[in-house]
Structure formats: C-alpha cells, structure tokens
Design a protein around this nucleic acid. Sequence first.
RNA 1: CGAGGCGUAGCGCAGUUGGUAGCGCGCAUGGUUCGGGACCAUGAGGCCGCGAGUUCGAGUCUCGCCGCUUCGACCA
Length: 481
Amino acid sequence: MAGNNDRFVNQIADIDSDYTKWYTDVCLKSELCDYGPVKGTMVFRPYGYAIWERIQAEADKRFKAHGVQNAYFPMLIPQSFLMREAEHVEGFAPEVATVTHVGNTELGEKLVLRPTSETIIGNMYSKWIDSYRDLPLKLNQWANVVRWEKTTRPFLRTSEFLWQEGHTVFATAEEANADALEMLEVYKDIANNVLALPVLTGRKSEKEKFAGAVATYGMEAMMKDGKSLQSGTTHYLGDNFAKAFDIKFLDKDGTHKYAYQASWGISTRLIGAIIMAHGDARGLCLPPPVAPVQAVVIPIGAAKNPEVDAKSKELFAALENAGIRAKLDERDQSPGFKFNHWELRGVPVRIELGGRDLAGGVVTVCRRDTAEKFALPIDGLVDGVAKLLDEINANMFKKAEAHTLSHIVRVDKLDEMGAALDGGNFCDAYWCGDRGCEDKIKEKFAATSRVMHADQSDAEKHKCVCCGKKAKHRIYFARAY
RNA sequence: CGAGGCGUAGCGCAGUUGGUAGCGCGCAUGGUUCGGGACCAUGAGGCCGCGAGUUCGAGUCUCGCCGCUUCGACCA
C-alpha cells in the first residue's frame, strides 16, 4: 500500500524502520518547514505556518474566555534581570544567547535574547500593579524565544521557537495555583479537540519542574514510537518572581503584599506532536481543525470534459462558501501524482471528480485517516464533507487514544522497566519522591518521570519501583523527546 | 562537550589501480496523456566542503581546518 511505484517508495523514509528519518522527511517534504542557515534554526514555510495560525486562533479563543488579553514584551532583556531569581538563572544560563556588541561598541550591560519572559514581564508588572484592584492580571504574548540547545530537530527543539506565554498575577497563592491548573485543562482541551491528541496531565517532579517555579504541571503526549512529548506546561510560580521583581499590591486590609503568579506555555512543538502522533507511511495526517487545506478537489479528465471542469469549480466554490478550507488542484499532473501529493501533506479529505462520478451524480471521496474510498452524492456534498471532517477528527483522537492506552503498562519492579520502555510503553509506576531514584532510572533506562497520575489515592500503599521504600506518588516514567 | 559516520548538480547517490565527472528524481521547453506517483524528445544545472602537500596530473593519496549528522550528556 505504501508505494504504488517502486521509484517513489523512498520518497519518505520507512516509518517502522527509521522513525527519526521518517519524521524529518515528513517535515521537509510536506513543505512544513526548512532548515535555516544558522544551525538549529528553522524556517516555517507557509504550509507549516498556517497550521500554527490555526492553533493560535483556537488558543486565543479559549484564552479570551478565561479573561486573558494579548500583549507584547521586548525580545531583549537586560542580563541582570535573569540573575534575580536564583533557580531561574541556574536553569537557563547554559542555553541563553547574549548580545554583547552593537557595531564595534561593547555594551555596558549585556542583553539576553529572551529564553522566556518571566523576568521582563515581572519587571513591568511591578510598575503596573499597585492595588488589589489591579488583580488578577492575565496577559498572554505570542512570541519567539531563543534557547541555544545542543541538538535540535524541526519543531521539537530548535534554537529559536514560537510559542505563547501566559503570565498571570493574583492576590493569593490559591488563585495562582488554581490558574495553573485551569490553564492545564485549557491546554488539554486544545490537544484533545483541536489536535486530536490524547494527553496525560499532571504535576511534574521537582527534577522536571520549570526553573523558578514552585510547581510545574504538564501535558504529555505519546508519539507513535512510544516516546513522550511534553506538549505544554503550566507553572505555579508562588511569590518567587514577585519577590525578585518587587511585585507588591496594597490589599484591602491596608498592608502591602507580594503577589502570586502563574505562567503557562504551548509552542510550535505541538506541530511536531501532530506529525508524530498521527503521521503514517504516507506522511502527514492532519486533524481537520488545524489542517490548512481540509478538502482538496481533484478533477479527473477535466481538459477533455468541460462538465467535469465546471462541476469541480462549482463544488470547490460551494465548499469554500460553507467555510471549509478547500483547494482545487487543477495542475497538469496525473491524478495519482496529486493523490500522493496531498496525502503526503495530510489533507483530511480528498474529493475526486471525473466523468464516471458525474454520470452517477456522485463524487469519490477518500479520507486520509483511514484511506477509505467511497461515493458521496453531489447533492448535499458540503454537508457531507463537513460531517466527514468532524468524524475524521473524532476518529483520529480515538485511534491515538487507543494507541496511548494500550501502551501504558503498570511496572512494579525496576527490572521490568527496560523491557516495557523498549516495547514503546509508558511505565505507570509508584515512586518514593526521591531525586536519586529518578536519576537512577534515567541512567539505567534513559527514561524520565513525566507527570503524576491523576489518581494518587492509593500511592502510599505501594512501594517505590526503584528503591522499594514506601511510595509517595503514582507517576509515569517514559523516554521523552 | 565526549564517541562514531558523512561532505560530489536542488534532493538521493555512483565514481574502479590517480588521467579533468556520471546516474535517478526534480527543474525548463515542446508534444502525447490524465480513475493511484504517465510517456517521448530536447535542454539547463558542478570552486567534487575549504586550504596546503605529494604528483606531469588529485573527486580519488597525505596533513590541517570547516561544516553537517547519528548516539550520549543538556532541554518546550
């Protein structure tokens, strides 16, 4: 099924034998992105950027519903800002790029390219917040950030990447922590319903926590190779940054208090998640809500059949008018070429229209997620396609969820972990909470703790998978990107 | 930053014992085609990563450098 013609079998690497190569092939050959001239940087091509724009639109809608407004803060941050929060410096220092010169003149205070904006936003918030009446303050920015990573991969890890970072401020610790948890649910909603991506959500271990946070919560998605991808994080920052940046407000009781903060982010890494969770031997498979092209109309034999030509134009216009992102492929290429072209690019629905269809008053429809081909009547086609798009989205989620659930195994003994991980599984395990055990598991199996299980009720009845002492948490261990 | 691999056309590669560069895909033009990657003809496209050395002669041998990449360590 993969290759109709031997010549093209190798257009993208085989997904089963070389997943890594398959991934980069899909990224590049479906024209999502390209490598930038500077190592580790990535160019978003229009097709890839369009996916990001869809994610942005869906996220903004939800942020707005949570009272969040968009704003923008500068990319250049005084180096000293980064130093103010001890854990924060330590965590980010190794990967921060610094601007030292302008022309030939050395700068008095060096500037860093933001690796994240807690510091500069904290600096501004301290000016803007005076009273409890100014709270809560909920801002979000869509921005680029720079983190100079050693090894990079398109979408998953690049020296510069695009994301959104929400920064919220509250009068109380409870509200701030609740915000971090609420936003995690928003992210889960986006993952599930926009990206058809099942995720595990929960609190992260101290080791995996954001540098400067009191608590970090994350959502983890399982890729087709069984590795986990951290797909979004929310942080309860306590008053750590408030103290570092002097964010205080005069409360109702007339006393000055430090504010409590949360921050949260999702990035273009989500596009990598889509690729790795849904892609197959034919390439990309895009969930309809983010697909730049949801349905492609392919006329067959239009050059010799004016009716086909006219009808395909008419159907295309009808789809567009109904708000379906459609495309009419009238290129002078063979149908098979076009089929493969759009399948590689993950277009959810293909509509074939030829003389044979026309005679029967139907079109031939092929859905990308299942490869099923069937006829749909031309009358009412727009509704049929709209329904099909919803169904595809639901099915893609179901399929990914089934894969995820069937690849989570309970592991009670350390020596079972290696086999479980090698089999592409997440390990559902109990853990004593000690960093030493996490380190040991990392060293032995190259796996890390991902997020804590939603159900912690019986954790203390069990023993740590690593050291055998009384467990504190139920948590997932997995190999991760 | 440690260990391996690789640098030849846009991409993927071949290049025998040293003799001045080839294949497939892609691209361009014309024609025939069009229900799963069409075919024919013609054509464009190369600082063989860079720099030294050996040689009458280097893509090929030697040394140095640079770049990329896979696996580790570090991370959204």
